[in-house]
Design a binder for these strands. Sequence first.
DNA 1: CTTAATGCAAATGATTTGCAAATTA
DNA 2: TAATTTGCAAATCATTTGCATTAAG
Lengths: 144, 144
Amino acid sequence: MNETTRTFQEYLKANRLKLTSQRRLILDVFVSRGCRVTADELFKEVAELDDGISLSTVYRTVKHLLQSGLARCSHYGDGTTRYEPADGQTSHLVCEVCGRKVPIANPYLECMHAEAARQAGFRMLHCHVTIHGLCHECLTKHEN
Amino acid sequence: MNETTRTFQEYLKANRLKLTSQRRLILDVFVSRGCRVTADELFKEVAELDDGISLSTVYRTVKHLLQSGLARCSHYGDGTTRYEPADGQTSHLVCEVCGRKVPIANPYLECMHAEAARQAGFRMLHCHVTIHGLCHECLTKHEN
DNA sequence: CTTAATGCAAATGATTTGCAAATTA
DNA sequence: TAATTTGCAAATCATTTGCATTAAG
């Protein structure tokens, strides 16, 4: 059993919930895929491996994944809700053209945020940074 | 006519759209209220001043407010979508307890973000920072 | 007078729920 | 065995749309 499954297992136990075959499969597909998916997309992928699983169960499981901190979700302009494995990373660069999403790891920046919060009388718990821009590839393409 | 109405007016003209009494009223209520509202809440407030306005029109107008840059929206865990006047401010401190939202103005931070982007080969266009934490008031209350 | 906007009611689409049957601890 | 979970179908809820009518430029 891997790290992720163990985390989920613990979450379930702590909440008197059960690890069913459906939950295990949904989790596996979700983490192995690793990118942003719609509940329905996830359902379709899971259904290929076990066509007995229902969309309701996917929705119900995804909620638990969010609560256990294993997943994170965001809402898009087109009305879709997408889920992705939470890697503990909360800062990203997002390319406006191709949609590429790159995590930022910059402890100094982190520090600056905590300081900015402190200056306003806040105690920072966690923060989200999304920098919208153009990635190197798209930049060079557009310069032609 | 105020600043906001003028901006909206320009947006409309640029898109061959019309400034109707409904649009004007919705905009007025929206900006004068100044805080996060649901489409339905906005509709109810507007309906008190003119009960001829429909929810559809509120939805349609809110879309234009978003497109004109006068409004900004965010989605919440409970499934609601809330709109608020865009003050050009994209960085905020949000108190986890009381929900208070304070804009951050820190050009140095801004600079750091651009630099972080550059290091990853990105050209930053704009960025959103949300620092979650506890505001001074809630901090002192909870220390009792 | 031409084009866009409105209100209404019906449609949509994502997400949730009730319930009887199946499964886990 | 007791409690939770599942699949299914029906329900819900926010948001959108078609259309005939009204209003703006």
